[in-house]
Nucleic acid binder design. Structure first.
Lengths: 355, 355
DNA sequence: CTGAAAGCGCTTACAG
DNA sequence: CTGAAAGCGCTTACAG
């Protein structure tokens, strides 16, 4: 296993310099000797010590991926796609989970990446100017996902217009009292980032556009999880004038919303409409209407953008499309129907979430 | 940024050897000089070049985590827990996704880990003897999750008895025609591993125990996903004598099962009972009855086991408990009820999956 | 407790 | 096209 360049050189009858050049396809080696070296290396099962080449070249051929959490569909998906692209380009990927503020601070203050990675992909976190500087000072190329920063590569979506489109769908169905459930960071966490806020902006714009007055009570925020969504919906249920529809900033939260509505005995979409965000793979199971934002593609994009920067290219800024995916959790509000009290359908067949 | 040991040594007025010792808390340095060195390092923002120390020590202080797929709740959860434990011990984690047979072969044949990691955690993959040897030949410590191998650390659960317990629950409810939906690898993929097979064994044992004759038609296999589960259930629906319940080897597949049943107009659990495996975080949303196997704990376990091996300890083999979590997708079979035709309840309230 | 020196295993100007 | 040599930035016996 510990076959070194020297053993290969010996076997191939050349110098170590030649071995090094031949094996890395550096120009300036005759085809004949290149083959001889390659063969010798193969026979010995040789592969260069990464530590040694890193020390000599200063390049690590690995990139870091930074996420707020791993155990979420969105991040699993995006990381999977990104690592695949990165690996094809010959890079290893180092994983960093920055779930708490403490972890985040330690990470950005410690120059931990220096000499460990050539570049880093930061997901769903809006790094501050200082944090970004710390990264570049460590010699890192950086690409952002779900955030933007002057001079840095990034991929994101237009969350404002996505939020607007979502709420318009609800307005078009005839809803007027439309709530918003968004993401608020916990004391100690740092998830969320800006997209959720932009979605809120879109929500407000659509309402204003339609002449529907806003209502603070209708905007609820919680942790980005099933439980967080459930908690937010529970609060909505006890407001003075309960809404007839809600736009939820993430599908996972929307799942929690569905759960609460079911437990409250409300029928979706007859009594209440729910619209999520992400197009989570399980949307189809519960019939959740949602906003798709090309999650897999975003993962590939951000990897490619970083690879470009690593090769000396300029930092690209991409924007992915968002589109409404109508399933079965949105419908016209009940009050608008002809017979509000008498059940207007068998009601138990074909309803979303009814297995 | 490129502050070296020398600059620290100079500033502290000591030799580089002393700096090296002081900074790594190696015994044999007076408290006074240790502090002086520490201060100098802090002032200079110094941190040792990983490549250089790796080359000098031969230790990388990083471990690899190998998974079949990233974009699944189970793996996200387990990786999250494992990386957390690893990071606390000062290790970085390198991620490897081996979704296809080709990727798997390349990985195990290329000595890619050599010099990159000190150890590796292999998840939900049953490595062959040769693959294991390749890893140890590369000097890797190895710990397995969801698999076992002579002489290697591992954490798993008793899937046979778990399968038995699951099916017994169904039998106790009065079901006799009970189907099994398991995981079969695609041509090109290598997911699954042994646990799914053991769950099948448990299913068969429980049936035999109860004197219920087996039926090949009742055992369906597909890809481990919502779509795979849906496809398998669709096949079950057209068997000659449709079963009244199914034990599904993974929750994600069970979600697909629920979807198909809903589309077929069947009510769960009135017309059909479904029992999953994993206790996926979304079980609660659709009310899926399932088998919990302490997923988060398994992630921590496997990391700790590897850390122990890395510190010279013996390879531990842990087994985690499995327990039935009854929710709302299992009930006595319809045919056993007193009034088979007339609905015996309001039937639309409180049903699983009805939001 | 501290320091001078060799060595870890590559890569890369510099000559030839 | 090929080789000898310096250097990348640490760690660790070996002396003292």
């Amino acid at each position: 296993m510990t076959t070194s360049v020297e053993s290969v050189a010996e076997r191939a009858g050349v110098s170590v310099s030649t071995v090094s050049r031949a094996l890395r396809s550096v120009p300036g080696v005759s085809a004949a000797t290149r083959k001889r070296v390659q063969d010798a290396a193969d026979e010995l099962g040789y592969s260069a010590s990464p530590a040694a080449s890193r020390l000599a070249t200063g390049r690590t051929m690995t990139v870091g991926i930074v996420v707020p959490v791993l155990a979420k569909w969105f991040f699993g998906k995006v990381i999977g796609e990104a690592t695949h692209t990165l690996r094809q380009a010959g890079f290893d990927v180092l994983l960093f989970e920055l779930g708490t503020r403490a972890q985040r601070e330690r990470f950005f203050s410690s120059a931990h990446l220096h000499g460990r990675t050539d570049g880093v992909i930061i997901m769903a976190l809006q790094p501050s100017k200082a944090e970004l500087e710390s990264l570049t000072a460590q010699g890192q190329a950086v690409a952002l996902l779900g955030a933007e920063a002057q001079g840095f590569g990034s991929v994101s979506v237009d969350n404002v217009s996505a939020g607007r489109a979502a709420v318009r769908h609800l307005l078009n169905l005839g809803h007027e009292r439309i709530a918003f459930i968004g993401i608020r960071d916990e004391e100690s966490s740092n998830l969320g980032g800006v997209p959720p806020l932009q979605r809120l902006m879109g929500y407000r714009e659509a309402l204003a556009e339609a002449g529907v007055p806003g209502d603070d009570m209708l905007e609820q925020f919680d942790e980005n999880s099933v439980d967080g969504g459930a908690a937010a919906m529970s609060r909505l249920l006890v407001t003075e004038q309960v809404p007839t529809a809600v736009f939820v900033a993430s599908d996972e939260m929307a799942f929690g919303v569905l759960k609460v509505l079911r437990k409250a005995g409300l029928d979706v979409p007859r009594d209440f409409s729910v619209l999520g965000f992400d197009n989570h793979e399980l949307c189809d199971v519960v019939g959740l209407t949602t906003m798709d934002h090309e999650v897999a593609e975003q993962g590939q994009d951000v990897a490619r953008i970083l690879l470009d920067i690593l090769q000396g290219g300029p930092p690209a800024n991409l924007s992915r499309a968002v589109r409404l995916v109508v399933r079965e959790t949105t419908a016209p509000p009940h009050v608008l129907r002809t017979t509000p009290t008498a059940p207007d359908s068998p009601h138990s067949a074909g309803h979303p979430g009814t297995p």
